[in-house]
Every structure is written in structure tokens, then in C-alpha cells.
Design a protein around this nucleic acid. Structure first.
Lengths: 243, 243
DNA sequence: CCATTTCATGAATAGCATTCATAAACTATT
DNA sequence: AATAGTTTATGAATGCTATTCATGAAATGG
């Protein structure tokens, strides 16, 4: 009964096509202007067919994010497998965000939107579940770093689980992505390099976790140098053009 | 020519009424179901009149947020005027968030939505400007705490401006508010008390800033006690019922 | 009291997400 | 290979709401 399998494959390919097309449209004309009918048209299918795959527009966006989350965790994996002290690996996870935004400039924008109650509740239960499932391996990677750190004595966890510590890092990243998307918000604070500042605050947080070796009040140059080193050593294939 | 002034006052009152009604509707039936026609109806005006005030639905939401931001900074003011070490005052700003969500459970939800590119770009330039202006005094208060800390030697700023330091705190808070709004996201990580964890990570960040007196790996009980003390001493009138 | 400007109204418009009756394609059976 | 039955694809029609704008009412001022 190979027919059924071929069919399944075709359906999966079509779904992938829809997501590809949706992403292209977001890139071309922003999330604001994304229309279901345009997606169908560009993919050369009927709107109804699109709705055979996704229960709503938000459902499609969550699917898109869920698919991309795997690419994102590829960077996390590279960070976690890097031959370096646990603290630097953890920091590299954050630098991964920085690298990822260059490659997928719309990803965090869509995440921000989809995590809003309004959008989140418009997605199907299955998609939400799939999103959670897709996140699990990434969280595992980060937890592994934390556990390594503990084992090697770099980190004495003060009653916080690995996931909890990771959430602090995630919160800072998430917060900065948010601010960055509201045009004018940061200019207003004369902040021109939000992602660099994000890195500094990640370092500060890790210092606050007492994660050795403590960076202390490092000069900006030192952090810049570390960021550059991580980009080259950990994410050599993920850097865009002449960034 | 008092006529003109009376008229202005009336218009301002009507605008306030619209915002009151909008907030009530959000509370009653969620942001997702907020409809412009319902707002107009409930306020006993025509839809067209509503659009005399707000250029779009998002414009109205940004106006709502902008109005409430002042209440929010009342808490920040209390925190910054508290007779306590600068570090505790800074922490109290974060605890203010916690107190504020109880009182205005929809505020951060709306902020999260309005800061999404999609919504942000649908608001008028004037509103965005007003939002920035409304935020300035709050930022000033926080900067004052940072400068006090520097003056008293509690904090040796390592090349970061007061605003930059404050942004780190803001990022953590903002990140946590986000996670909290995506139903199921944190349960999935077995995190049941996000705002308590937020407070811990704020402490960790302040430690990372080397803001004296360093809290170190404080037991949860100590942080809980401090939170409770701040609630009672700093925000006595802002606590809801038997929270 | 009339002319003119300003303001308020809500029915009409318009944009899109979503549905669903219909047709096409495919599968199984004789 | 013809037929009946089942599954899948279609896109015109629906429906919901934000937004507009022609119309009339009210205020202003001479």
C-alpha cells in the first residue's frame, strides 16, 4: 500500500509549500499585509485547500514558527556542542539569537505576534502542542549546558532548576526582540545597538547567576571580541553576507 | 472665550469615556473580541464619533495603554521615593509590575499586542509620540535611582548609561509578561509562579550589575519576604483584595 | 434671523478570513 | 473497463467588522 504513503508525502510537501510561500510574502510585504488568498494564489492552489491544512491564519503562522524553531535550535545545538567553558556556551546561545535574526529577520516578529493572547488563542490545539514539542529538544540542550556547568563546578545552582535559569536568559532575549520591533521605541532612548546591549545584559545575568568564570565589569571591546569569536568559531556557516 | 475651553473639556471627557468603555469591554470579553461598534454603542455615541477621536482600533488601544502608563509610573514613583537602599528601590520597581498586573490584568497583554509591528504600525504618529512622551518621566525616575546608586557608591557603572541598565530590567519584565500570556507555555516547563521567578532573575541581574548590597544566592524565602515587605511598605494602597 | 462653519451620525462600503455546496479525482468492486 | 462510492479540491458566496462619508443637526457669529 505505497499509494497512501506517496499521498501523505504529497500532502506534507504541499503544506511545506504553503509555508514557504507565506514566508516569502511576509518578507516581501510584511506580516501586516499577509493575506490567506494571496498565499493560496501564489502557491497555485485554491483558498479552500489552504484551509484543509490550517484552521486559521494564526494557525498557519504558528506552523511557520514551529517549522523555523528547528533551524533556530540548530544554532543552539552548535552552541551547546562547542568546545568551550560552559559559561561561554551559554552565552553563545544568546549570540545565536543575534545570528538568527540576520538570517530570519521576520522570525521573532512572528513569534512576538503569535505569543500574544489574541493570536495564540486563534491557533488550533494541535499546533500549540506541536510548538511545545518542537521546543522541548531546544530546552533540553540548554538544560544540558546548565547541568554540565553544575557538574564541573562552574555553577552552584541556588535552588533554581536548569529550565528556570534558562528562562531568565530567554526572557532577556525575548524582551529585546520585542523592543526592537516597535519602531522608534529604542531610538527614543538613544539606544542604537539593541542586540549588543542584549549581550551585555546576558553577561550581567550570568554573572548574577555566579556562573564562572565571572566576566565582571568587562569593557565593551572584550564583549565585542567574544561575540565575534563565537560568530566565527561556532556559527561559521550561518553568517549572512558581509554582516 | 470660555466656550472653546468647555468644548475642549467635553471632547476630552468623551475620549476618556471611550477608553473607559473599551477597557471594560476588554475585561468582560477579552481583547480578541473587542469591536469598535460595541465600544461606540456602549458609550452611547455613533461609530463615526469614535473615529473622530481615534484613527484606528490600534490607535485606540495605544491611547488606552498610554493613559494607563501614568498609573503604572505612579508605582515606579513610589518605588523610587521609598526610603531604602538604592538596590531595594530598583527591585521595588520590578515588584511594582507584579502589583500592577493584579490591578490591571489586561494592561501588559495590550502592551504586548500593541508593541507588535502589526499593531504598532497601525497606530497614528501622534499616538506613538504621546506614548513616548508618557514613558519619559518613568524612565527618568528609574534613571534617578541608578544615579543615586552611583553617587552613594552602591553601583559602579561599567560604561552603561542609566537608561541602558534600566532596559535590562525592563527586558526581563517584558519577557516574563509575554510568556505568561501564552496559555500553556509555562505549565509546559513546570513553571507555576512566573512572577516570582521574574523577581529572582531581577535580583540575579542586579547582582550581575554588581549593585550593592549583593543579594547572592538568596533562599527563596528571603526573596519572598522582601517582596512582601515591599508590597506592604511601598504599595500599601495598591494591593487588591486578598491577593 | 440667516449664513456659515463645525460636528455627529449611522447606513453604506470595503477588505478579508472563512465556509460549504459542487465538481473532480481517486479507489474498490464486479 | 464500467460503476458506485469515497475522498479531496475548488472558488464563489458568506459573514464579520473596521472604516468611510454623504447627510443632517447644532453651534457660531454677524
Amino acid at each position: 500500500m505505497g499509494t497512501k504513503e506517496r499521498r501523505q508525502r504529497e500532502v506534507a510537501e504541499r503544506e511545506a509549500l504553503f509555508l514557504d510561500v507565506a514566508l516569502e510574502l511576509v518578507r516581501e510585504e510584511s506580516l501586516l499585509n499577509l493575506q490567506m488568498s494571496r498565499i493560496a494564489e501564489k502557491a497555485e492552489y485554491a483558498v479552500g485547500t489552504l484551509y484543509l491544512h490550517f484552521s486559521s491564519k494564526e494557525d498557519l503562522l504558528l506552523a511557520l514558527v514551529t517549522r523555523t524553531v528547528k533551524d533556530y535550535y540548530d544554532l543552539t545545538r552548535k552552541a551547546s556542542e562547542w568546545k568551550a567553558p560552559s559559561r561561554d556556551r551559554m552565552f553563545a546561545v544568546g549570540v545565536g539569537d543575534l545570528v538568527f535574526v540576520k538570517k530570519h529577520p521576520d522570525y521573532f516578529r512572528i513569534v512576538q505576534y503569535i505569543l500574544c493572547e489574541v493570536a495564540w488563542n486563534a491557533a488550533s490545539e494541535q499546533r500549540k502542542q506541536a510548538f511545545h514539542d518542537a521546543n522541548r529538544p531546544g530546552l533540553k540542550l540548554v538544560s544540558t549546558i546548565v547541568e554540565d556547568a553544575r557538574r564541573s563546578g562552574d555553577l552552584e545552582i541556588d535552588g533554581q532548576t536548569a529550565e528556570e535559569l534558562a528562562l531568565g536568559v530567554w526572557a532577556i532575549c525575548s524582551g529585546y526582540h520585542n523592543f526592537t520591533h516597535a519602531e522608534g521605541l529604542l531610538n527614543h532612548l538613544s539606544i542604537t545597538e539593541p542586540y549588543f546591549l542584549m549581550c551585555r545584559h546576558l553577561q550581567n545575568l550570568l554573572d548574577g547567576y555566579h556562573w564562572k568564570p565571572i566576566a565582571g565589569p568587562a569593557e565593551p571591546q572584550a564583549i565585542s571580541a567574544l561575540i565575534e569569536r563565537i560568530k566565527k568559531e561556532v556559527f561559521p556557516e550561518d553568517l549572512c553576507n558581509a554582516a
